[in-house]
């Protein structure tokens, strides 16, 4: 048995199984292709379940995956099959709630991508190289937010033309996809 509780990966996917942000802490998936295959499989396996009220759990290729969905975002935490499920779930809950705090309750893909920096910092504060750093959502969010206080000027500070330009850019991209 792995003596120290360890996390294999944390995934944040969208409602089509595409990556929003993922972090792998294990060599089990050496290539990007292997990672994508894993994400695809996990997504396919969990897609139809209802993991909105409570975190759900599944076993998969000798991994335990706990997961929770909100809007069009799917949160996953993976551990080995002899890991304490409840530890994994607490990591998931910490991640999930911290994202909720950081996105001010707007837990959806668009918001998450617009604040990807916060999400990435959040992941960085939860697990370091597979070892759990923190599971308390408020502490995690606090650590992330304390860094971003003076960055990311609010929208009002942008000039209208900037805002327009940004909006147009978003729009064009959304269509040109």
């Amino acid at each position: 048995m792995e003596i120290c509780p360890s996390i294999k990966n944390i995934l944040l996917l969208d409602s089509e199984g595409k990556r929003v942000a993922v972090n792998y802490y294990s060599d089990d998936w050496p290539t990007n292709a292997a990672k994508e295959a894993f994400e695809k499989a996990v997504f396919a396996k969990t897609q139809k379940t209802n993991a909105r009220a409570e975190a759900e759990i599944t076993m998969f290729d000798n991994y335990i995956v706990v997961y929770k969905f909100a809007q069009d975002l799917h949160f996953f935490v993976t551990g080995s099959d002899n890991e304490n499920e409840i530890i994994l779930a607490s990591v998931l809950q910490g991640f999930f709630d911290a994202v909720g705090i950081l996105l001010r309750g707007n837990v959806e893909k668009k918001e998450a991508l617009e604040n990807l920096d916060l999400i990435l910092l959040c992941l960085d504060e939860i697990v370091d190289g597979g070892i759990v750093l923190e599971t308390d959502a408020n502490v995690i969010a606090g650590k992330v937010a304390s860094n971003s206080v003076d960055s990311g000027a609010p929208l009002s500070e942008q000039t209208i033309s900037q805002a327009l330009a940004t909006a147009r850019e978003h729009l064009a991209r959304s269509l040109l996809k």
Partner: peptide
């Protein structure tokens, strides 16, 4: 989008479609 290149004046997208695939990284 069609007008983007044709005209400098762009209709501001005030009610963006939530159902759309949207990504700032698109």
């Amino acid at each position: 989008v069609v007008s983007e290149m044709a005209q400098p004046l762009v209709k501001k997208d005030d009610d963006r479609d939530d159902e759309m695939d949207y990504s700032p990284f698109m």
